[in-house]
Design a protein around this nucleic acid. Sequence first.
DNA 1: CTGGACCTTCCAGTGCAGGGGAAGGTCAAG
DNA 2: CTTGACCTTCCCCTGCACTGGAAGGTCCAG
Lengths: 129, 129
Amino acid sequence: MRIGELAERAGTTAKTLRFYEEQGLLPPAERTPSGYRDYAPETAARIDFVHRGQAAGLTLAQIRQILDIRDDGAAPCEHVRDLLDARLAEIEQQIAQLTALRDTITELRRDAAHPEPATCSPDQVCRYL
Amino acid sequence: MRIGELAERAGTTAKTLRFYEEQGLLPPAERTPSGYRDYAPETAARIDFVHRGQAAGLTLAQIRQILDIRDDGAAPCEHVRDLLDARLAEIEQQIAQLTALRDTITELRRDAAHPEPATCSPDQVCRYL
DNA sequence: CTGGACCTTCCAGTGCAGGGGAAGGTCAAG
DNA sequence: CTTGACCTTCCCCTGCACTGGAAGGTCCAG
């Protein structure tokens, strides 16, 4: 299977698959005599795994770690668990930060609901920020 | 006042102030005869405004819009209000996405709590992702 | 045998907010 | 007169996951 067909099956682009190969997410593809990449159909499952990892908020580097462990013949379960734990902690922190920011902005926004440009002193940029 | 002193007063670096000037957040500074930038003390207030804008989650480009309006002699109240509204909507959406992601990962994590590598089939990368 | 669809490599850029460091000029103190 | 702190411009680098495009090779149908 050539790269375009695989890309379409996996719901991505040929460009992205070359990029994944370069990043070590896909093993270097077999080549036809003329130099075209030639993929086994199972490769699509690997790309799906990459997509599931992304959907779980993992970076390509993290997904690559999992794939490397698997490619070594080991079960990556524990590493996956650790990555999920770490990601979860990050997300909690991000949510907390965004919630705090939302509260801050909500308050600023309330103060700015009835702007009174006349009361703005010329030596400040904006009373409401 | 030279750039290093202003940077220290405003809690930032000389490098950043040159960058702000390049981005149009600060007007081109006066120069001493030898070419050094020479700032009026009020410039610190403008930098503080930039920092408050950043604390409100605005980009430098958005903060620049506000400053441009103010520099034109107008009151930027309405534009500030619109920017805060837009930022608020973005944040709500980000929180919603992160919350959904957290739930997804929490579920994945629960399934992966007691890994059973033996039950992993060799043709998939990881049962838990 | 020609056109068009596909493939190859390589280089470069995107957005965001700066940071690193080179090569050289300036200024005050000792 | 020299040292060291500060300043100048200049260009490249960071992270992340791609995307765009140029120049050229391959393959198949008509």
